[in-house]
Structure formats: structure tokens, C-alpha cells
Amino acid sequence: MNCEAAQNLLDAYLDGELDPPGRLEIERHMQDCGLCAHGYEERRALQRAVGGSGLRYKAPAELQQKIRFALRREANAEKPSRTVPRRWFAAAASVAIAALALLVVLPFMRGRAGDDLVAREVLAGHVRSLMANHLADVPSSDKHTVKPWFNGKLDFSPPVEDFAAQGFPLIGGRLDYIDNRPVAALVYQRRKHFINVFVWPASSDKQSPATIIERQGYDLFHWTKGGMNYWVVSDLEQNDLRNFVDMLQTEAAAVKS
């Protein structure tokens, strides 16, 4: 082996990438050649300096967190249907909480008007949806997405309308539990305020006009029309909410007929 060949192989030799005959050849050459032996020592010193100077960067802890979070979101987004069990779990949890609340509250509520009890539940449902940051199981402004979502989750099909043109965009829908039964909750937004509309089948065909209940700074409108109970709750200014209720009543009637 001559010097030129040896010099070209010194790095591979240093990195342990030569086969045994190649190693032997270069070792033999270095025994006779001071220049190549020196070249090898230089490379070895440099490699040690690079490897031993703490030059390896480590991923910051926040990056780890960020990536784990992003991956989870990605996994959920890849197959939306896969997340249904989690939503069901959330729904089941809220059912359990509501049921528990009912057990605690019910003994004190006996003898009160039915509407009063429902009003409490509706308000609790509204507040819970905001507190738990759980406004919608199906976040969508498209009524053709929201309405079918309830299929198979409820034994009725709630009327779903978007009022974006009137300044009350549909945000989405979710399941809730009111008056001892699963109900549809439709969520609308008015500027920075949220409106929950709870819908479930009425026990009779009797119609009743919109009635307002004020409670803890919230306004609750409720009425029965077309065989459905409607409860609307928000912290929105009352006249604004009343406009919304009027639209809802008109549209729901149109859908029904």
C-alpha cells in the first residue's frame, strides 16, 4: 500500500469501516510511514475533540410536549370516526354527572314546577359546556354535517338551521342530558356570546308560546312547538336573544311543515 491509498482510507480506518484485510494493510503501512501515522493521530484527535466537547444538541422539553400534542391531534384528525368512542365517553361522563346532580337535587325539588327543574338543568348544561370547553361534539357550521351526526345517537332528529346570515352562526352540536333523557344541544354564537339550544321531543302535541325565565344573569327561553321542547339559554342581551328565538321559531315551523 502506498501513501496515497493509505491517506484515502485513514478516515474509514478511524471509523472502523474497513474490512479485516484492509485494516491489516493500513496498520502495516503506518508502522513504516510516519506521515500516515501522524495523519491518523490528527484525525483521531479531531474526532475525539468533536465527540467530547458537548456539541450534541438535545431537544428542549417543550418541544417534546409540543410534538406529543401535535401527534395526538394528528391521530384524531386522521380518522374522525375513531374519536367517537372518546366523545361517547365524554357524553357518558356528562350523563353520569347530570344523573348524579339529579340524585342530589331531586329530593329538594319535589313539589316544584317541572319547568323550574328543567331550567336548572338547562342552565347547568349551558354553564358546563362553557366551563369544560366542551361546546360541541360535532364542531361544524354546516347543518348538513350537524344534523346527521345525531343519527343513531338520539331517537329523534332535531331541526338544525344555520343563522350565520343573520349574525348567529351555527358552531356545532353535542349530546346532553336534560329532564331524564338524552337531548340534542345545538350551539350558536353571537359575537363573543354562546347560545345553547336544547331540543327534545315533547310528551304531548300541545303547543306553548315562548316563555322567559331569568336566572343567575342568564336568560332562558322555552317553548313547545311541532312536538318538540325547545330551551334556549345564553348570557346574550335579552332583546338580541329574543330575536334569535323568533328566528328559531319561524325556521323550525318551516322545517316541520
Partner: peptide
């Protein structure tokens, strides 16, 4: 995930 340091480096 265990190779994040290598990736970052």
C-alpha cells in the same frame, strides 16, 4: 419518539 434528540441535533 426516543430519537428526538438525534432528530433535533
Amino acid at each position: 419518539l426516543p430519537h428526538m434528540d438525534a432528530a433535533y441535533n
